[in-house]
Design a protein around this nucleic acid. Sequence first.
DNA 1: TAATATGTAACTACAATGATTACATGTAAT
DNA 2: ATTACATGTAATCATTGTAGTTACATATTA
Lengths: 144, 144
Amino acid sequence: MSISSRFSVGIHILTLIEINKDGVSSSEYLAGSVNTNPAVIRKIMGMLKKAGLIKVQPGIAGAELAKDLSDITLLDVYKAVNVVKDNELFSIHENPNPDCTVGRNIQNTIEPLFFSAQNAMEKVLENVTIEDVVKDVIEKEIKR
Amino acid sequence: MSISSRFSVGIHILTLIEINKDGVSSSEYLAGSVNTNPAVIRKIMGMLKKAGLIKVQPGIAGAELAKDLSDITLLDVYKAVNVVKDNELFSIHENPNPDCTVGRNIQNTIEPLFFSAQNAMEKVLENVTIEDVVKDVIEKEIKR
DNA sequence: TAATATGTAACTACAATGATTACATGTAAT
DNA sequence: ATTACATGTAATCATTGTAGTTACATATTA
């Protein structure tokens, strides 16, 4: 199991749109940097657009950020690209035996534990913005 | 994407072995409570055994906990049943374009962020033991 | 040796991922 | 208006993981 790379690609796209803000970030251009097919990029762009993170228009080349850099968290991207359904990072087996003490209580016991673990993870994502990512990419670039 | 229910089934198994400690927890018995096939249970039992969490022997019916209740954390179970590879909860797209500023730095920027998010989640699992789960199941049972 | 349990391998159905192709739709320049 | 080009989206495919099922070898005990 692994969370889809749509998430990391989404971060890549937003970061590149910012760094290339004086140029035109078409799906083909972005695909060239991510190194995948433009249709894959367009699909993810569609999700980012739906979530209000970028502005794109049919027929017009290029995408722009729809919000301030510092106002887009990794959690926003994570939710936008739909890699994990709400509160379903962990799946719990269904239909345990109601005639057994453990069977009839285990789901209610486990569920809040899983929620809080998932929540701790998402809180970390919420505390990082695309601005942080852009700055780090630039910093790493300078140190080369 | 969702983390395999092997994890929740593993917790169920350990909890039931404890609560049924005066009885015999065979794979068939456990399967009856989880409500799945005994072979599925045996496969997971094999993983729990390999991780040193339970004792099972071929030919001998029943499983026992190999460690103290309070000494088995949910993180132990999570690692035992192999639902997420080490530091690979999030997958990062491979082969971004090295001729692009973002392409050649994004992986190194994203990786530590993903690690810390995954780590925050695992820390929560580390702070819950099977003893906590057993107690909660019993408590919920009493309140019925 | 008969009965029973664990350990495994093989096979199936199903779902998600990521890539690819194709094409409809929308925009702008000539 | 027609051409050129970009986005939006559907269909298809190979690959992988999950969960269940069957079957059987191996091990233990009565």
